[in-house]
Simulated scan of single mutants.
Amino acid sequence: MPYAVRLLPPTLSLLALALALAAPAVSAAEGRSAAPVPAADGWSAAPSGGGRPSVYAEGVPGAVLQDTLSVTNRGAGPVTVRLTGTGVPLAFADRRVRVPARTRADVPFTVAVPPGAAPGDRTGTITVRDGAGRTASVAVLLRIGGPRLSALTVEQVAVGADGITYELVNRGTTTLVPRLAVRAQGLLGPVLDRAPRTLPVELPPGRRMRLTEPWPGRPALDAVEVRLTVTAAGGARDTASVTARFVPWPAASAGAGGVLAAGALLVVRRRRSRGAGGC
């Protein structure tokens, strides 16, 4: 048996027996005499060692961490429970455990830190369920060690009919909430100037996200340099720009025989420059 079974102290055993004798009996006229079923509080689950409300594990990517869960049956009859884990990689010595009356079963389990996982905290849950559907839950906190790097780039900037499109890439090891500032400089001065604001997105490590910045009221005739600057906590910063020419339909049709469409724009140049947080 891959888990250890321990008898409860005599005082707890006598208390459980007294409770069982005080419970109403099932009469033979009911036509059933099933095995004793523990009350809703007849068993419990908790991290072994006593006094721990949850499981805490800490390690670097690739580590396998060990701990033990105790299932205590204070009832007058045996109980069989099943163990499942969610949120973090959990593996149990046995997922199905039979705990005799007035006995505690200690079930070893491991928490695996995924290789390449970003530093930070992950949460999970161990759920213990008996045959009657009653459950007990134990929270798991996994803290992943390693260097915390904040790095962000803005790429693929373009001006189109829907506005300014661009891609944000998290090249660090922490989840980022980016801030964006937009400035467009035309031949006669600024035509767009938006102060930095927090975007309603979260960007996990390694993720790429394509976004669009609306631009109503674009110039009808101008050559404009559009500059996007993104920042995030931890010193991440990057800047990219694109130059576009706006040509109105009448001028385009007169000068080019109708080759250009109404409000056409020509993207002629892209530039980018990265700050200290870029990669």
Score class of each variant (00 low, 15 high):
P205G: 00
R207W: 10
G217Y: 07
E155C: 04
E155Q: 08
L149S: 11
R197K: 10
R179A: 12
P204R: 02
G189K: 10
P147N: 13
A236D: 10
A158M: 15
R171D: 12
L141Y: 08
G172I: 01
P214H: 01
G160Q: 08
V224H: 03
L188D: 15
T198Y: 08
L203N: 03
G206Q: 01
A132C: 11
A136Q: 13
G160S: 11
G131H: 12
G133L: 00
R194P: 08
P190Q: 09
R194I: 09
L192R: 12
P147S: 11
R210H: 13
A158F: 11
A184K: 03
L152V: 05
R134P: 07
R134C: 11
P190H: 07
L211I: 01
L192H: 07
W215Q: 02
I164C: 05
G217H: 04
V140C: 02
P204S: 02
V226A: 05
P204L: 07
R129I: 08
T229M: 13
G146S: 08
M209I: 10
P219V: 04
A220K: 14
V157Y: 00
G131Y: 10
G189R: 06
R183K: 15
L188C: 09
R143H: 12
G145E: 14
A220P: 09
R134V: 12
T125M: 14
L168F: 00
P190T: 13
R218K: 03
T212D: 13
V138K: 05
V140I: 05
A136G: 07
A195Y: 06
W215L: 00
L188Y: 14
V157M: 01
P200W: 06
T174C: 13
G146H: 10
R148W: 06
V159P: 09
R210I: 03
R183N: 06
T125Y: 07
T173S: 00
V191W: 13
E225D: 09
G234Y: 01
T165D: 14
L228S: 01
L168W: 05
D193E: 05
V128A: 06
V169G: 12
G133H: 06
A184Y: 01
S150R: 03
E225P: 04
V154K: 03
G235S: 10
R194E: 15
S150P: 01
V157H: 03
A223N: 13
Y166F: 14
P204K: 03
N170Q: 07
G186L: 03
D162I: 11
L141T: 15
V169Y: 11
G163E: 08
T231C: 00
E167T: 15
T125I: 10
T125G: 08
A158H: 13
L221A: 15
D222K: 00
A181N: 09
D222G: 01
